[in-house]
Amino acid sequence: MLGYILRKTLMVVPILIGIATITFLLNFVFVPGDPVRISMGQHADPETIEMIRAEMGLDDPLIVQYGRFIGGLFKGDFGKSFTTRQPVLDMVLERFPATAKLALAATIISIVLGVSAGIVSAVKSNSFLDYFFMTFSMLGISMPVYWLGLVLIVVFSLNLDLLPAGGYGSGSLRYLILPAFALGFRQAAKVARMTRSSMLEVIDKDYVKTARAKGLSEQIVVIKHALKNALIPVITVIGTQLGYLLGGAVLTESVFSWPGLGRLAVNAVLKRDFPLIQGTVIFLAACFVLVNLLVDLSYGLLDPRIRYD
């Protein structure tokens, strides 16, 4: 088990180097536009531009720039932002709490709504409730998150005046509710569908019949004996989503002016702030890999047949 964690953790290093390389190449080779020109505006004089380019190291051959970038990563140096001149890592870490809060809140909502709707749908499959939840979740998957966000703002902020329409509100819970719901609803829809299909697979298993024959109540049969066996695919979906959300929910953050990583990344792209783009992407990748590792480890807790050696 410990060896497995260690090996998996070590595997993260080549994955991150690979991702860093790809983002680096994408930035410098495929993205049109000169970051200096963009930050200086159209009328900057060529000499100043040249000077800044040299200062930023943009004149060096690509391979030198690449070496500097990767070498820096090993020292925990993600470089400095072209636009703000701040260390990228500081900027990312500053935004991360807001993103993490939104991601966790959305995930909790998706687990509570999604898992319960999925269980009910599976247990009462082909009933009215099942059709209701599944239609609803189809809607949830199909509905763009910015549209749902706008509808929530119109209803709860403009019309009912219950909750703020956007902003961070220095961390107040009231500001979290709408964006978390907008984001969580969609995730809940996916979780519900996965829970339903996974539960349907186990609900007719012999051991569920055995549990009933023991005289256990239907709730215990479903939750203790069926759900635990159905949980692995569900956890996988939830984990993948959480990993993804930790890198910032671009659309939701934009609609609700949420000061998270997603907006930071979008602004970085717009300004061709290459170090910041690389920093956010690598950070996202690291979150993703870490959550996946945790998901992997949870399999062993759920199913004793899964061994790590």
């Binding site: 298993k205 012999d206 051991y207 019949k209 055995t210 549990a211 009933r212 024959a213 023991k214 005289g215 256990l216 109540s217 004996h225 635990k228 066996n229 759920l302 199913d303 004793p304 047949r305």
Partner: peptide
């Protein structure tokens, strides 16, 4: 009925391989 099941009347099934829950001891 649930008080009777597993207590006064109990049942064993055909497939021992699948009749026990794999995730509990």
């Amino acid at each position: 009925i649930r008080k009777i099941r597993g207590n006064e009347i109990s049942m064993i099934f055909q497939e021992p391989m699948t009749s026990l829950n794999p995730v509990y001891t």
